[in-house]
């Protein structure tokens, strides 16, 4: 349904996207996981026909994104930043955009009612958007993106800045789409969200570093993950040389590596490091670990990262 082939985007001297390739099957919920600046938004903007790629190709249901007009009626997009008209009601917002997608009269009214219902936003149809909560605005935005029954739904950080309960609600609504056979492509730096998707492409610095289901990605790590908190990770690593450990990663005040049967290694690690180890943690691999061992860096997660506020207060 979505095919991306060696897609690159250059802004001046900076390469925002480096030869990214992947494909998404019909009905899949596919997630781009990566920290801020990984190139997720650039990639989604190209697929949304807002930005032209510097090189490479991408197809939505076989149609090249260079044929912007044909692609536009086949995709629905929810942007990272709020994009509703605050001075209109939810219904009026949908009505305006619906007409621009070629919907009219009865059919338009029917679709608006349908998508608002689907997102559980029927009761706010006639409320001015400025009086809606952040979570409800998000739902109205998703509803708007679904109006013209797009084949592909593109969501850029749909849950960013939402509190956990609201996030869960929105996510339930999104998963309901899966049963409707819509293909969903979303970006996130939220591990929980990524975990719930069918497949994940991990992105870092403009490249895709790994693709697969959450289970497949974690299975690439052969063993458990050991994380040692220490003031001198280099020194600690030196002392552990004799052990059977893999892919050591030296981080700030932390040493991480992969080991088989790590639980049994813990006493030996403790003995070898002595005072050097402030804490030793052994765990089954998570997506954060997959990111760490594919890139050598920690994913930031979405802790304390509010949704970026754009623009100024409306008069």
């Amino acid at each position: 349904m979505i095919r991306v082939e060696r897609l690159s985007k250059r802004y001046g001297n900076a390469l925002a996207l480096r030869e990214v390739s992947f494909s998404v099957e019909r009905g899949e919920v596919f997630c781009l996981l990566g920290p801020n600046g990984a190139g997720k938004t650039t990639l989604l903007s190209i697929l949304a026909t807002l930005v032209k790629p510097s090189a490479g190709e991408a197809y939505i249901n076989g149609i090249s994104i260079r044929d912007a007009k044909a692609v536009r009626s086949r995709i629905g997009v929810v942007f990272q930043d709020q994009s509703l008209d605050l001075k209109l009601t939810a219904w009026e917002n949908l009505e305006t955009i619906g007409v621009l997608y070629g919907l009219r009269g009865e059919r338009l009214a029917h679709r608006i009612a349908q998508v608002l219902e689907l997102l559980g936003a029927s009761e706010v149809a006639n409320t001015l958007v400025k009086n809606l909560s952040g979570g409800m605005r998000r739902r109205v935005e998703v509803a708007r993106a679904l109006l013209h029954e797009p084949e592909v739904l593109i969501l850029d950080e749909p849950t960013l800045g939402l509190d956990p309960k609201v996030k869960e609600e929105l996510w339930d609504h999104l998963l309901r789409l899966r049963r409707r056979d819509a293909t969903v492509l979303l970006s996130t730096n939220d591990l929980e969200i990524a975990e719930a998707c069918d497949r994940i492409a991990i992105m870092d610095r403009g490249s895709v570093v790994a693709i697969g289901s959450a289970a497949q990605l974690k299975a690439r790590i052969a063993g458990e993950v050991v994380r040692i908190t220490t003031r001198a990770p280099e020194e600690a690593l030196e002392k552990l040389r004799e052990l059977d450990i893999h892919s050591p990663r030296v981080l700030r005040e932390k040493l991480a590596f992969i080991a088989k049967d790590a639980e049994e290694l813990v006493p030996r690690i403790a003995k070898l490091l002595g005072e050097l180890a402030l804490a030793i943690e052994v765990r089954r691999p998570t997506l954060a670990d997959v990111f760490l061992f594919s890139t050598g860096r920690e994913i930031e997660g979405d802790k304390g990262k509010g949704r970026k506020k754009r623009g100024r207060r409306r008069r």
């Binding site: 026909t49 997009v77 942007f79 008209d85 621009l100 754009r310 623009g311």
Partner: peptide
């Protein structure tokens, strides 16, 4: 500034 223009721009209008 409020992102509405981008939404207009991705419609086929």
């Amino acid at each position: 500034e409020f992102g509405f223009l981008r939404v207009l721009m991705i419609t086929p209008a």
